[in-house]
């Protein structure tokens, strides 16, 4: 099986920080699954701006990252690039710039082909929950990630 577009799934976060580690749990789950040959799974970690080189080959990009303030704790939300960039407070670069800066600067510094589609799957942090050990939630989120990777946003607007 191949996807209709070459796709990269990029999971972002910090394994050493529980409140930022959920996307890397999704990475760990997806790593055990057989992915189509035109789908690459990438542990984005804290690479931030250094993910630029992963975004210059066209195709579809599905980011998975932790978010706060978009939906209820322990839920997922699909964000547009514009929504992510809108969280960018000062417009400048710093070591914490992360995904908002990366997506804002991408069209201006891309030296290859821009992605045809960029999707951000946000996992809302749950301060009171135990998201990282909720295997049902993590499996469901991994399934959703694969669905987004396969079809893009088509039919995935409603969760």
């Amino acid at each position: 099986m191949v996807f209709n577009l070459p796709t990269k799934i990029i999971c972002i976060g910090n394994r050493l920080q529980a409140q930022d580690a959920a996307a890397l749990k999704i990475y760990d789950i997806l790593r055990t699954r057989k992915l189509p040959e035109n789908c690459r799974l990438i542990e984005g970690g804290l690479a931030g701006l250094n993910l630029l080189s992963q975004l210059e080959d066209g195709g579809r990009i599905v980011f998975v990252d932790t978010v706060t303030g978009f939906t209820g704790p322990g839920r997922t939300v699909i964000l547009s690039v514009e929504q992510v960039i809108a969280t960018f407070e000062n417009g400048g670069y710093d070591h914490a710039a992360g995904l908002p800066y990366l997506l804002a600067i991408l069209p201006r510094v891309c030296t290859g082909s821009l992605p045809e589609e960029i999707i951000v799957l946000g996992i809302e942090y749950d301060a009171n929950g135990d998201l990282l050990n909720d295997s049902i939630f993590l499996e469901k989120t991994a399934d959703l990630t694969m669905k987004l990777a396969r079809n893009g946003l088509k039919d995935n607007r409603k969760q």
Binding site: I12, G13, N14, L16, Q17, Q19, D20, L46, G48, D65, T66, V67, T68, G69, F70, L79, V84, T87, E89, D94, H95, A96, G98, L99, P100, V120, G122, Y125
Partner: peptide
């Protein structure tokens, strides 16, 4: 200055206060 590398979540809420920095 380079103190730590910690949390990089996307946050809709504006940061409160003026002291704690980024990461």
């Amino acid at each position: 200055p380079c103190l730590v590398c910690a949390v990089h979540t996307i946050s809709r809420r504006k940061k409160a206060g003026q002291l704690n920095l980024g990461i």
